[in-house]
Each structure stands twice: as C-alpha cells, then as structure tokens.
C-alpha cells in the first residue's frame, strides 16, 4: 500500500492536469452550447464512476453476506471495501448533482426539473446517504448486515438511473454512448472525455485504497480493544 501510494498519486495528478488541459483548451467548443458544454467532461466521468463504485459496493456487500459466518476475517475485508466504495460513489453522485444544475441553468433556463433521470439520481444519492447514516448511527450488532442488505436493494436504482433516458422522454439529453445510430460525439470530444474519465478513475481508486487501508486499521484497533474487554469483536468500523 505504502509503496503504491506515491506513484499512484503522481499518476493521478498527471492525469488530472492533462485531463484539465484536454477539457479546457484542447477539446473543441461545442457549436450549440459554447464553452458551458465543457462541464460535460466532469459530468460524464462522475456519472459513470458513481455507477462503478456503487457496483463495487454491491458486489462487496454480497460477498460480506455470503462469508460473514464462515469466514469473519474475510467478511470484515468485504465490509470495509463496501463502505469505502459507497463513500466514493456518494461523493461522485454529489458532484453530479452539483454540476448538473450548473449546466442546466444556462442551457435549459432552469436549475432543476423532476424528470426521470434527475429524480432517479437524486433518489440514488439519498439511498446511499441513508446507507452511510445506517453505518454511522445504527445500534451495534447488526449494523454491517443491515447495511449490506440496504446496499443490495439500493443498487437496484443504478440500472434505473442508467436506463431512464432510454425508457422515458426526459429533459436530460439522450445517451451519447450506445445511444443508437444518431448518437455519438466528435472524436476530439471523446478523447477529452476519456482522459478525464481516466483521471477521475485514478483519483477514485486512490481514495478508495486509502480509505480501505484506514478502515482495516480501525477494525484491527477495535478488535484489540474488544479482545481486551472480552467483548465480541465483529462490529463495523464506522
């Protein structure tokens, strides 16, 4: 972990700087919206990565529920990984909900509308905030199991968010990826979008890694304390 941290941090910073250059100076100005369209490079990355981190949380939560009785040590690792990914996904979801209205106001003339994409994204954010609240405030004993079950049900909203612009006619634009024959982007916009996606992915992996490592240490400390007081040690690090 320590050996990887600084090279990965350097890679992340380099990608973030190059992604910024791509988004602000190299990518062409979009014909209809002008420079405000450059929010897309952050919005696209955050929107995709929140799905990825929530998916990782979903898989880790299933893993926790499967092994929680047979292999408590591995279950703790699954639980820490689930929590780290839920936090990272929630942060990306928060940035999407900040960027969206700032883009909508000059383009649509409104900050917010209750269309299916926006509403399902807000619901997704609230579900994972609830997940984090459960982790933080639930009475000890069943916290990890409750959180894992909530995460599995909460993840059901992710496909709805993703498909909402395909299933319904929304104020939010139609998909530009796998969106059919008339969708797609200028290759130079794709280049900038993918550099920024790579930069934010590197950033997300860095933070999840550090958080996971820190949670492992917190769990170890709690187990030592529990062993000292002869209490059950399988309560979550919060």
């Amino acid at each position: 972990m320590k050996k990887l941290f600084y090279p990965w941090l350097a890679l992340t910073i380099a990608l973030a700087i190059y992604g910024f250059m791509q988004a602000w100076f190299i990518a062409p100005t979009e014909a209809t919206m002008g420079n405000i369209q450059r929010i897309f490079y952050y919005h696209f990355a955050a929107g995709n990565l929140l799905c990825l981190f929530f998916f990782a949380n979903f898989v880790a939560s299933i893993g926790y529920l499967i092994v929680r009785r047979s292999n408590p040590t591995r279950a703790q690792k699954f639980d820490a990984f689930a929590l780290a990914n839920a936090e990272m996904g929630t942060v990306f979801c928060a940035t999407v909900l900040v960027q969206g209205p700032l883009w909508a106001r000059p383009v649509w003339g409104i900050w917010w509308t209750w269309d299916e994409r926006l509403t399902s994204t807000l619901v997704l954010f609230l579900i994972y905030v609830a997940y984090l609240m459960v982790r933080r405030f639930a009475v000890a004993g069943q916290t990890q199991t409750l959180a894992a079950v909530l995460a599995i049900f909460g993840f059901l909203d992710v496909p709805i968010v993703y498909m909402s612009i395909r299933w319904w006619r929304t104020q939010h634009p139609a998909p530009v990826i796998f969106g059919g024959p008339n969708s797609g982007l200028d290759p130079r916009i794709w280049t900038a979008a993918f550099w920024n996606l790579g930069a934010w992915l590197a950033w997300g992996i860095l933070l999840v890694g550090v958080r996971y490592y820190g949670l492992g240490r917190e769990q170890a400390r709690q187990q030592r304390q529990a062993a000292a007081t002869r209490e059950p040690a399988w309560e979550a690090a919060r």
């Binding site: 942060v91 900040v98 883009w103 106001r105 950033w203 933070l207 820190g214």
Partner: peptide, 28 residues
Amino acid sequence: HLVLAFVLTWVVQLGYAAWIWRRWRRAR
C-alpha cells in the same frame, strides 16, 4: 457556471480526501 462547476467538484472531492486523511492519521 463552468468555473463554479469545476471549483465545487474539486471542493467536494478534496473535502472528502481531507476527511479520509484525518481518519487515516487517527487510525495510525
């Protein structure tokens, strides 16, 4: 709006990173 989106994105992300850093130091 573009500048604000960029600034707030980094404020949220760096705020979370700072919180993680504080937790990690406490756990050490």
